[in-house]
Computed example of a mutant assay.
Amino acid sequence: MAATGDNRRIDYVEFNVSNIEACKAFYGRAFGWTFTDYGPEYCEFDDGRLKGGFTTLGNPRPGGPLVILYADDLEAALSSVEAAGGTIVKPITGFPGGRRFHFSDPDGYELAVWTKA
């Protein structure tokens, strides 16, 4: 598989929030972001350069959004994370449009890696 220009780069930022509508109102008003809803538990935002999401599926983490990297080969990325000393926090799971896993780095920061379906 040939690597894309996005392989193993930060691709998305996800905020665990308590109220998606309140976040949309705030970020839309404060920064002019636009939004695409994907059901009651998920909304994608677009700031004009970077996309990210608001979700109620996790616990809000004050001070830290979930940084998400993209990988052409998700299984190879998972193996690389483990080989480098990372800990898999959530195994590979599917979602509409792709699959992803979560890991923590040696300092305990949780990140995720995703790939298209």
Rank of each mutant, 00 (worst) to 15 (best):
S80R: 14
P91G: 14
G85A: 10
E75P: 09
N16G: 13
L74E: 04
L50H: 15
A76L: 13
A83R: 06
S104A: 13
E21H: 03
A84K: 01
Y109L: 12
S18M: 04
Y109I: 13
D73A: 08
A2S: 14
F31E: 05
A84T: 01
N7Y: 10
L66T: 05
L57Q: 15
G53M: 07
V67G: 00
I10V: 15
T4F: 09
G85H: 08
F101K: 04
L69A: 15
G53W: 06
R8Y: 12
S104W: 07
G28N: 06
D107P: 02
E82P: 06
E110V: 15
L66D: 03
I92E: 00
T55D: 09
T56M: 09
Y12P: 00
D72R: 08
D6A: 15
D73T: 04
H102N: 06
G64D: 06
I92P: 04
K51Q: 13
F103Q: 00
L66R: 06
D105I: 00
P106E: 05
W33C: 06
P62Y: 01
A77L: 03
A25E: 11
A25W: 03
G64L: 05
G58R: 14
T87L: 05
D46Q: 06
A71Q: 02
D47F: 09
T56L: 11
K90Y: 13
G32P: 01
A117L: 13
V89M: 03
F26V: 02
L111Q: 02
T55Y: 11
F15V: 04
S79L: 14
A30T: 05
R9A: 05
G28C: 09
S80E: 15
I10C: 12
G86Y: 07
G94S: 14
S18T: 09
Y70L: 11
L57K: 14
E82N: 10
Y27K: 02
L66I: 04
R61H: 11
G53S: 07
N7T: 10
I92N: 00
S104F: 01
F35S: 06
F103S: 00
G86P: 10
D47M: 11
D73P: 01
V67R: 00
G53L: 10
T93R: 15
N16Q: 14
R9C: 02
C43R: 07
A22V: 08
N19G: 09
F54A: 04
S80I: 08
W114C: 13
G97Q: 02
D47G: 10
F31T: 07
F45E: 06
N19Y: 11
D6Q: 14
Y12C: 02
F54I: 03
D73N: 10
G94P: 07
V113P: 04
G32K: 02
T36S: 12
G108R: 07
F54E: 02
Y70G: 11
I68Q: 13
L74Q: 07
N19M: 10
I88Y: 02
G86D: 10
I20N: 05
G28S: 10
V13Q: 11
K24D: 09
V17L: 05
Y109H: 14
V113W: 09
R8L: 15
S79G: 12
F35I: 00
D11N: 12
S79C: 12
G85I: 07
K51H: 13
